[in-house]
Structure formats: structure tokens, C-alpha cells
Design a protein around this nucleic acid. Structure first.
Lengths: 154, 154
DNA sequence: GATCCCTTTCGGTCGACACTGAAATCATCG
DNA sequence: CGATGATTTCAGTGTCGACCGAAAGGGATC
């Protein structure tokens, strides 16, 4: 007997969350992200998320705050509604990825400073130089690559 | 009165270690990396590292094992020497960075699987599609960019 | 084989952080 | 203004991992 679609989707959410857990995003935060990417309708209240994801209201609150903060989730309040509605802000993924790329390239400032401290001793600077060149190239190319990123599909 | 060069270098090592600590590398592991990049002579024993970095022999051992494992440090044993010598393997930084880039791009397999699960419901797949396109582009471009990386300076 | 030195292993401590659930807070509506 | 239904805050718990230092393990020399 085959498993239902919703079952497979929740397994997918779990894989999704697990991936980002490795990158330091709390498990529940990852679940919220995954869930909000594929739920119908697109907006959910904190209470609904708590129910759906079987997580405490406290965890949901903390993680929503974090996700709204980094921009991946948008909070919407409406007059006449006591419950705020949350939804994925798919546009924010570009910034999210860009931060990761710049984080990698940022090592270059570190190696650069090191090279300065070792100026006058090229022998000793050799190892760092190899690393510095690599990061120097990266920090030039990554932003350039990023500029060529395609617009999102219509 | 100005601070000495060695003092500044050890401050640099600390900054270096702090950066990689944010990426999940233990502080002491980062210190070893930074130190081995700029020490003279280039090879050190575990005992020397323990002394220089004021870390316990146990921590040095654990972290060296890890660094050797990921290839960033090379262990060399010599007949007639009871102490092994460790040095930076600056060549391995390319692999190290590549792993980070592929880790970012690997989200594409996740979004791709999600899209498959949502095939037949384009409405519901819209949010994921935006994210999937971005990662799809990345996982095509990043490896291509990487191929164009320059050789290390002679 | 005994000794010496160095490295690895291992038990234990400490601090950080995710998560929970209850209490406090807030907003809306009657 | 009080009641209602939602969210946020907060104290407490458990887990995990980095680090330490002592003990065990391994080579090398004598």
C-alpha cells in the first residue's frame, strides 16, 4: 500500500529541516520554513503552525521571530484579527544565499591582514599567500557571479 | 609604546580562529590552523602546539585528528623521531572551499524533490518554484565558476 | 626489556542552546 | 471595562559538544 501525498510531503519537510539544522538553523525553524513553502493556503498563524508541526507555542514564537528577522518569513497583522498570519517570503532567499556567499569570501580580509603582518618576510608568508590568493579570487568572482543571477520566473 | 609583531600575530590567530568557530570549527582547531599558517619553521609537534596555544594535550590531539582528516593539516612521522610533525597543507584549501560551495548548491536536490512531489499542483508549487530556480541556477553556475579558479601562485 | 617521551584515549566538567509549558502580555470585541 | 483568544516571555530541563587533565598506549633508544 502506497503512502499518501501529505505523508510524503511531511517527510520532505523533515529532510528540509534536517539540512538546515546542519547549517545551524534550529530544527523547528527549518520545519516552519519547509512547511510554509508548500502549505495551502499560504498563510498560517502561530497556533496553526504549533499544531501542524507538533511544537510548543514557545518554540514556534522564538523561531518565527528569528525567521521574520532574517526576512525569510513575513508577518502580517490584520484589523479585526487577533491572530497574526505568517507566510514565506520567497524573494528573501536571494539575500539569504548571498549572505552565505559573502561569508565565505570574507575570509579574504582575514588572510589579507595576515599578509600585511608578514610583509617583509616572504618566506614565512608563503603558506598564507596560497590561501590568500584563492580567497582573493573568490571575493572578486562571487559578487560578479551573483550579479548575473537570473530574475525569478514569472 | 607599540605592540610587538608576535603579539599582533597571535591576535590575528585569535581572529582567524573566531571566524571559523562561527562556521562550526572548534576554537582550538581554528587556532591550530592559524598558527600553522604562519609559524616558522613550518612543522610543529603536538606538544609544541599544546605549549604555544596553551591548550590541553587532549584538545590538541582531537583537533589535529580532525584537521588531518579533512586534509587541511598533514601529519608526518619520521624514523628515529617519536614525535610526529604537523604542517599546513595549503593545497587542501581548494577542497575545503569547494565543499562549502557544493553544500550551498546541494539544496537544489531538496527543492527539486519538493517540486516533483507538487507536480500536478502548480498553484501550490509557486513558492517553492522561486526557490528552486535560484538553487538550480546556483548548482549550475558554482561548479562552472570553480573550474575557472586560478592555479596557486608559484 | 626497561626507560623515556610523546600521543591518544577516556571520564568528567562546564557552558550553550533548543525546546517545553505555564504565566504574563497584548489585541480585539462585546 | 471585562472577557476571549491569541502571542510572547521566562524559568526550567535535557542534550550536546568543547575542553581539560590524568591514565593508558606506543615508539625509540639504551
Amino acid at each position: 500500500m502506497s503512502v499518501g501525498r501529505e505523508t510524503r510531503l511531511s517527510a520532505w519537510i523533515e529532510r528540509f529541516a534536517a539540512h538546515f539544522a546542519e547549517e545551524g538553523i534550529p530544527l523547528i525553524g527549518g520545519r516552519i520554513l519547509g512547511y510554509l513553502l508548500i502549505c495551502q493556503p499560504v498563510e498560517r498563524t502561530a497556533a496553526e503552525l504549533s499544531q501542524e508541526l507538533e511544537a510548543s507555542s514557545g518554540s514556534i514564537s522564538t523561531n518565527l521571530k528569528y525567521l521574520v528577522n532574517v526576512g525569510l518569513v513575513t508577518k502580517r497583522t490584520r484589523r479585526g484579527r487577533q491572530a497574526a498570519e505568517y507566510r514565506i517570503n520567497e524573494k528573501a532567499w536571494t539575500d539569504f544565499i548571498q549572505r552565505k556567499l559573502t561569508a565565505i569570501a570574507s575570509v579574504q580580509t582575514l588572510t589579507d591582514d595576515g599578509m600585511r603582518l608578514l610583509s617583509g618576510d616572504p618566506e614565512r608568508a608563503m603558506r598564507l599567500r596560497t590561501v590568500d590568493h584563492l580567497y582573493g579570487w573568490l571575493s572578486a568572482e562571487l559578487p560578479a557571479l551573483w550579479e548575473r543571477r537570473p530574475a525569478s520566473p514569472k
